[in-house]
Design a protein around this nucleic acid. Structure first.
Lengths: 151, 151
DNA sequence: ACTGTACATTTGTATCTACAAATATTGTTG
DNA sequence: CAACAATATTTGTAGATACAAATGTACAGT
C-alpha cells in the first residue's frame, strides 16, 4: 500500500514531507512487529538492544556512556533501563575500579541464554519484515539511509 | 556515516537485521530533528500530525477513529492528545449529533494559524533532512518502503 | 420494549521517556 | 593542597504511551 493510501491525509504534501513521514511510519510498523515478538519475553526494544550490545562486548564490560553511544534510541534513561535488566538477572553492574565514577555492566549467562533463544526468532522476524524487497533493494535502501543521515 | 560506524555493535549482524535497525535508527534521527523544530511551538509530533490531519479535512470535522486511522503513530492515546490541543485552543470537540457515540473534532482558526506559521519551517526542515539524497533516490526510497510494508 | 452485541470513546494504571538538577569522583591550576 | 571545572552516573518529576477495563450509545433480533 502506498503511503498516500495508508495515511490519506498526506495526499497534498510535497515529496520531501511525504518521504519523511514514510520513513517514520514504516519504522513504526516495523517496531510494532518487533515489539510483539519481544513481548512474551518481557523485553522492550531498548532493553533488547542493550542486551545485544553487551553480548557484542565479548566478555568485556561496558559502561553506561558506551552503552548510550551504541543504542538506537539514545535519549532513553539508561540507568533505569539497566535496573530492569538487573532485576531480571540478565546483566549485572559494578563500580569501575580504575575510575569510580564509571560503572561496569556485564551480561550474565542467563542474559546470553535468553538472547540465544531469541536469535532465530528475531532473525526470522526480520526476514519476514523484509521479505518483499530484493537483495539489491536492500543494499540500495541501506546506502540511501546512510547518505540521508549525513544531512 | 554507515550504520556499522554509527552503531558499532551491529558489525556482526546479517543484512536483514542491519537494515531493520538502520530504518529505526534513521527514523529516530529524523524525529529528533523534527522535535527540535516543533518544541518552541509547544507541539510534539503526534499533536502536529493531528493538526495537519484536521486541516486536511477542509472544514469537515473528524471523529476520533478517523483521526487514529490517519495517524503515523496509531497507538497513542488520542483522547488525551486532543485534550491537550483543546487546552491550547487549536481544536474543539463536540458530540456528534447523528451518532452520540461519536465525537466531532475541528481545527480552530488559531490552529490553522499556527500551522501556517509552521509550514515553511517544517518544509525547510524536511528539505534539509533529505538534502543529500537525489530525486531519483527519493522516489526509489518511497517505493521500497511502500513495498516493504506489504510483508 | 427487552436483551444482547457491536461500536466509539474515555478512563485507570503501570511503565516509559525527556529533561533538568543533584551527586559523586577525577583532573587541573594557581 | 584548595578551589574549580570536567566527567559519569543517578535521581526527581512532569509528561507521554500502552493496554485493559469501563462507560455510554446504537442497532438487530425476538
Amino acid at each position: 500500500m502506498k503511503i498516500e493510501e495508508a495515511l490519506k491525509s498526506i495526499h497534498s504534501m510535497g515529496i520531501t514531507t511525504k518521504t519523511v513521514i514514510n520513513i517514520m511510519y514504516t519504522s513504526r510498523i516495523i517496531e510494532e512487529e518487533i515489539v510483539s515478538v519481544l513481548k512474551p519475553y518481557d523485553l522492550n526494544i531498548p532493553q533488547y538492544n542493550v542486551l545485544r550490545i553487551l553480548r557484542g562486548q565479548n566478555g568485556q564490560p561496558a559502561n553506561l556512556s558506551t552503552l548510550q553511544e551504541r543504542m538506537v534510541d539514545r535519549n532513553s534513561n539508561t540507568t533505569r533501563l539497566v535496573d530492569k535488566l538487573i532485576k531480571k538477572g540478565w546483566v549485572n553492574r559494578s563500580v569501575c575500579k580504575s575510575n569510580r565514577r564509571k560503572v561496569e555492566i556485564l551480561i550474565t549467562n542467563k542474559g546470553l541464554e535468553i538472547l540465544k533463544e531469541l536469535d532465530p526468532i528475531t532473525d526470522q522476524n526480520n526476514e519476514k519484515i523484509l521479505s518483499n524487497i530484493s537483495k539489491e533493494e536492500l543494499e540500495a535502501l541501506n546506502t540511501t539511509l546512510d547518505t540521508l543521515r549525513t544531512f
